[in-house]
Simulated assay, not measured.
Amino acid sequence: MKVVAFERNLQGTGASRRLRNAGKTPGIVYGVGAEPKLIELDHNALWHALRKEAFHASILELEVAGKTEQVLLRDVQYHPFKQMVLHVDFQRVDANKPIHIKVPLHFIGEENAPAVKLSANIVSHVVNELDISCLPGKLPEFLEVDLSKLEAGASVHAKDVALPAGVALTLHVEQENPLIASAVQPAGAAAEEAAAPAEGETPAA
């Protein structure tokens, strides 16, 4: 994905306010041994780009003053109640150095899971992204979580997610192995089951 920005010479609260009033968003590019660079971007174009999932977990081609460099979106500051981006941070990437980034999860096969089809369980998605480590060229836009074989009462953890070649979970995720999704019985069904008489018992009058 390509992002066009312009160099920004003025900084400070007043300068940033004037930029926003002119439909621009202030930002910064930093990293990979180069000096941080102040930039400004068209607010509306940025706002629409931020609504795309891939914009948050892809290597972006950032063009500034006719020169293009590869970056990752690292931070976005939103106005507390207006539909406005106050500031955006990009980090340069080195093609030969691993990056750490959160990647969205796409859940598939849920409707075919035995937990859903045979046991009327509800699948709860506990987290929707995972921290991974990989070289920039190996970065996936998302990770698929196959739930088609999920049994009643079972769960899926981070280590159960199939990772593309060259992609690994970050160390803390590997160690913690957090819960990703689980199949649970609806509360109403559980209550009915508990109230039902066991086989051979006579219901109370």
Rank of each mutant, 00 (worst) to 15 (best):
M1I: 13
M1P: 10
M1G: 11
K2G: 02
V4L: 10
A5Q: 01
E7K: 11
R8V: 08
N9F: 14
G12M: 06
G12L: 04
G14H: 13
G14Q: 14
S16A: 14
R17E: 08
R18H: 12
L19E: 06
N21K: 15
A22P: 12
G23D: 00
P26K: 08
V29R: 03
V32I: 07
G33N: 01
G33Y: 03
K37H: 07
I39T: 02
L46H: 04
L46Y: 03
L46K: 01
W47P: 05
H48Q: 13
L50P: 09
K52P: 03
K52E: 13
E53H: 11
F55P: 05
S58A: 12
L60T: 04
L60P: 02
E61K: 15
L62A: 07
L62G: 01
V64C: 05
A65C: 06
K67Y: 10
T68D: 11
E69R: 15
L73E: 00
D75T: 11
D75N: 15
V76I: 14
Y78V: 02
H79Q: 10
F81T: 10
K82H: 14
K82Y: 14
L86K: 15
L86H: 06
L86E: 08
L86F: 12
V88P: 00
V88F: 03
V88M: 04
V88N: 00
D89M: 05
Q91L: 10
A95N: 08
N96Y: 12
V103A: 01
V103P: 04
P104H: 08
P104Q: 05
L105M: 01
F107W: 06
E110T: 04
E111F: 08
P114F: 01
P114D: 04
V116W: 12
V116L: 09
V116H: 11
V116M: 11
V116G: 10
K117E: 00
L118H: 03
N121S: 13
I122K: 14
I122L: 15
H125L: 12
V126Q: 14
V127C: 10
E129Q: 10
L130D: 04
I132D: 08
C134E: 05
P136A: 08
G137N: 14
K138S: 12
K138H: 13
L139W: 03
L139K: 03
L139T: 02
P140Y: 05
P140M: 06
L143Y: 08
E144M: 05
E144N: 06
A152K: 03
S155Y: 09
D160H: 11
V161A: 02
P164A: 06
G166N: 07
V167S: 00
L169S: 07
L171Y: 09
H172M: 05
Q175N: 13
N177A: 07
S182T: 15
A183W: 02
V184I: 14
G188Y: 14
A189K: 13
A189P: 00
A189W: 11
A190T: 02
A194N: 11
A196K: 05
A196Q: 09
P197T: 02
E199Y: 06
A204I: 15
A205M: 13
